[in-house]
């Protein structure tokens, strides 16, 4: 996979979340730090879907424990997880 920047990872995740879980939502409301799991936007199934998307989109392999709230609660934490895997 071609090298991707942190900003690209973040943008891809944001687009996916907006399209899949928050259709019609104002994109500006969804920031890097918006809580997704603790606010109830992502439940356990949605979190799994996001993790499947990350694996497929960025060609990385996630472990089950990486679906935990500290990795999946915000777009920022997801981006960090993906970028760490891509290093």
């Amino acid at each position: 996979m071609a090298t991707v920047t942190e900003a690209e990872v973040s943008r891809a995740i944001k687009e996916y979340i907006l399209e899949e879980f928050l259709p019609g939502e104002n994109p500006e409301e969804l920031t890097e730090d918006t809580p997704l799991v603790t606010s109830g936007v992502l439940d356990s199934v949605a979190t799994l879907k996001v993790s499947m998307f990350l694996q497929k989109k960025f060609g990385i392999k996630l472990a089950a424990h990486e679906t935990d709230v500290e990795f999946m609660n915000t777009i920022g934490s997801m981006t960090k997880l993906v970028c760490d895997k891509l290093k």
Binding site: S44, V45, L48, K49, M52, L62, A63, A64, H65, T67, D68
Partner: peptide, 30 residues
Amino acid sequence: WKEFMAKLVFYPVHFRMSNWLQGWRASSVL
């Protein structure tokens, strides 16, 4: 309890099932 099950059973099982049942639809794996 739900989070215990998700962490120790549901997520690990789903990750494993996703590998084992690769031809299956996502909803069936779920």
